[in-house]
Nucleic acid binder design. Structure first.
Lengths: 252, 252
DNA sequence: GAGTGGTCTAGACCACTCG
DNA sequence: GAGTGGTCTAGACCACTCC
């Protein structure tokens, strides 16, 4: 059991982000550097003194990390690094970075890029999107590959109002999530998903290089910010038999 | 827009549960009574006065409800009831109560009940369970039905040490989750899941009343408490084509 | 400007773990 | 008993919304 050493990074008191966010980010970054599975954090009191902030504020940072699943607390013992049980693609985060983390080479091929006035009926039905929602969408359709093998077809509807002056080449090979935050300052916070096991249609089979009727997983998703603004509607079709999607640390 | 009225339920100051938990539960219960989709809550200050507790404590309760997805906060405006976008079975909470909420009649048939010394290999492989984990399990296999129609087969491994003197008839028709908390005081907090779209084997097909090779969804799950104790390992096989599983409010 | 949530503080007491 | 996290308080100031 090793203990996290603090680099005494400065907290900007009257700066941009709230103090507890700064503290959380510093700790998060340092924790991730340790491969060590048995890592303990300094106590609340110690952190409070080190950073020169109140214990309540330190606690707020720690609770945020706990909610994210980065650490856990043990009454009377301390805070410890949490190890994640699952591996595999979640389909919820950045495809690009998830695949890289698993040691594969992610690929993305734009199959279609167009404007759309309305969300298709099946999207509205499954994702309970109101018709009076944001009108005008960008519709992006991409093939997803790992090491050159097709594993999914993804159709994304982006409310146009949130993505000013977006163009096709911006989505070429990059991660959509990275784009969202870097270019447009949109931070995805929650997602709602619907999983439907079904048989591949001939079109899907063609794209994924499988036989018609082979098992696939259709995932419908709506992603929202902390203020409940929908940033994307997604329909993904994943190849079955051997491929797995993971949902880790789902709060019950 | 209606506002939540308070019934001035008494808070037991030095009683069992922490005050913020009591406040959260009172509010949660009252919120759920309102079908009203546009429901606003009393302000933090008002709740603080009503309940006779500090604003920080009220806030802790509200934040807990926000994390659960029951309400959301709007800076400078107040707290509001959150409407859930998704419908459908999540497979993560109580099957019994979820189906009832959807207006169906849930059924459960025990197919098998036995002791097991070890977790099967495929469970260990998919759920990354260490071999030196809790040994000795109860293995429970149940058919899940809605209005008499089979929709899933579920195999659960329960670490025996956590469920003293458990017997087959306890699981007969009841919700396992309700049992966990009521009988053994076990509170599930997080779950990790793996989704695998695949084709039904002949055994699965027989149980679910579908054809061999028809699409099904295999879900592997490990459920843990807040202190990271595994309370169950589950393998569920869901019938495909038309049936959907939902994962709502997943924190990204 | 009044009211709301967002953040922060200093200090207190309790419950749990470990030596 | 010393150290840890868990809960709670009273009071303060800021940022945002709405009138």
């Amino acid at each position: 059991m090793t203990t996290l050493l603090l680099k005494k990074k400065a907290i900007r008191k009257s700066g941009a982000a709230p103090i507890y966010v700064q503290v959380a980010e510093i700790l998060d970054a340092e924790i991730k550097l340790h491969d060590d599975s048995t890592l303990s954090l300094p106590s609340e009191g110690e952190l409070s003194r080190e950073f020169g902030v109140s214990r309540v504020t330190v606690r707020q940072a720690l609770k945020q990390l706990e909610a994210r699943g980065v650490i856990y607390s043990a009454h009377g013992r301390g805070y410890f690094k949490k190890l994640s049980r699952m591996r595999g693609l979640s389909g919820f985060h950045s495809f690009t970075s998830e695949v890289r983390k698993l040691g594969g080479e992610p690929g993305s091929i734009i199959v279609d890029y167009a404007d759309a006035r309305k969300l298709p009926g099946d999207f509205r039905k499954h994702l309970q999107a109101g018709g009076d929602d944001n009108n005008d969408f960008i519709c992006l359709r991409r093939m997803r590959t790992i090491d050159g093998n097709a594993i999914a077809v993804e159709t994304v509807y982006l409310p146009k109002s949130l993505y000013p002056s977006a163009s096709r080449d911006q989505f070429d090979d990059a991660s959509l999530y990275a784009q969202m935050t870097e270019t447009w300052g949109i931070v995805p916070a929650w997602t709602d998903a619907l999983f439907e096991p079904t048989a591949a249609t001939s079109e899907e089979a063609g794209l994924l290089g499988i036989e018609k009727g082979a098992p696939v997983l259709v995932v419908w998703r709506a992603t929202v910010t902390d203020t409940d603004q929908v940033v994307e509607y997604v329909k993904s079709i994943y190849k079955g038999d051997g491929f797995m999607l993971s949902v880790s640390r789902y709060r019950l």
